[in-house]
C-alpha cells in the first residue's frame, strides 16, 4: 500500500479549491507584482541591504506558503465534521499517515507558491547564485515546519466556521510582525517579532547578504516552535481520536 496516490489527489483538491488557490498563490503573486514592480530598482530596501524585489519576493512567498501549510492541516476540521475522517478510520490508512498526507500536500502547495514567486522575482530582476537560491529555499521549507504542526492543531481544535477567520487573522498578524510588508526597525515590536517563526521565514532573504541566513536565535526560535506545536498537534490529535 502506498499513500502517494492519496497525496497526489490531496494536492489536486487544494488547487481546485478556489479560496485555497487565491490565498496561497493568486493573492501573494498579485501583491508581489503590485508592491515590488514600482520599487524594482531599490537596491537596499529601508537600508537593510536587500534589494526590494528580493525582499518582497521572499516576504510574499512566506505569506503564501504559511497559508498553504496551515490551511492544508486546518482542512482536517471540515473532514472531521463531515464524517470523512470517521470513514477513513475504517480503512488501512493509519491516522499518522493521514496527517502525513495533509502535511505533504501542504508542502507541495507551498512549493508551487515558491516557484510562482521565484519566477515573478526573476522577471523583476532578482539575481542570486544557484547556491543562494537553494539555501534560501531550504530555509523557507524548514521555517514552515512549525506552521505545518500549527495547521494540524487548528484542524483538531477549531470548528468549521472558525477556520477561515482564524487563519486569515493569524496570517495577517504574523505576516505583519514577520516583516512581510516592510523590514522591521529596532524596538519592542522587533523583539516580539523575533520570537515568532514567521519573522524567520521572511528572513530567508538574508542569504543574499552572505553568511548564514539565520542567526543562532533564528534556528532556536524555529526549533522551539516546531517542538512545542508538534507536541500540541500530537495531543490534539490523540484527544480527538480517543473520544470513542
Amino acid at each position: 500500500m502506498t499513500t502517494s496516490t492519496f497525496v497526489r489527489y490531496e494536492l489536486i483538491r487544494n488547487l481546485r479549491n478556489r479560496r485555497f488557490f487565491v490565498f496561497t498563490i493568486g493573492f501573494p503573486l498579485a501583491l508581489y507584482v503590485l508592491i515590488a514592480a514600482p520599487n524594482r530598482h531599490e537596491e537596499s530596501l529601508a537600508g537593510s541591504g536587500i534589494p526590494a524585489p528580493l525582499y518582497f519576493m521572499v516576504g510574499l512567498a512566506a505569506l503564501g506558503t504559511m497559508n498553504a501549510v496551515v490551511g492544508g492541516g486546518a482542512r482536517i476540521a471540515f473532514e472531521r465534521v463531515s464524517g470523512w475522517t470517521r470513514q477513513l478510520r475504517l480503512t488501512p490508512l493509519r491516522p499518522r499517515a493521514y496527517l502525513g498526507t495533509k502535511v505533504a500536500a501542504g508542502y507541495l502547495s507551498a512549493s508551487l507558491t515558491i516557484i510562482a514567486l521565484y519566477a515573478a522575482g526573476i522577471l523583476l530582476g532578482v539575481h542570486l547564485s544557484a547556491g543562494r537560491w537553494l539555501e534560501m529555499t531550504g530555509l523557507l521549507l524548514i521555517g514552515l515546519l512549525p506552521f505545518a504542526a500549527l495547521g494540524i492543531v487548528l484542524g483538531h481544535l477549531l470548528g468549521v466556521e472558525a477556520v477561515g477567520p482564524t487563519i486569515g487573522g493569524l496570517s495577517g498578524l504574523l505576516g505583519f510582525l514577520g516583516g512581510v510588508w516592510f523590514p522591521l526597525g529596532q524596538g519592542a515590536m522587533r523583539d516580539v517579532a523575533e520570537a515568532l517563526p514567521s519573522f524567520w521565514l521572511v528572513q530567508a532573504s538574508h542569504v543574499s547578504l552572505g553568511g548564514q541566513g539565520w542567526s543562532a536565535t533564528g534556528w532556536l526560535v524555529v526549533a522551539a516552535w516546531t517542538v512545542v506545536l508538534s507536541v500540541l498537534a500530537a495531543y490534539s490529535y490523540r484527544r480527538d481520536t480517543a473520544r470513542a
Binding site: M1, T3, I12, S82, W84, R86, P92
Partner: peptide, 29 residues
C-alpha cells in the same frame, strides 16, 4: 482492509470527481 462500510452519516470528500475519489480509496487497499 477486510471490511467495507457505509455509515449512516457522512458526506464525501469535496473537490474530487466520483472516479477520483474511488481511485484515492482504492489506493489504500
Amino acid at each position: 482492509g477486510s471490511v467495507g462500510v457505509m455509515l449512516q452519516m457522512g458526506s464525501l470528500l469535496r473537490d474530487v470527481s466520483v472516479r477520483e475519489l474511488l481511485t484515492m480509496m482504492a489506493s489504500l487497499y
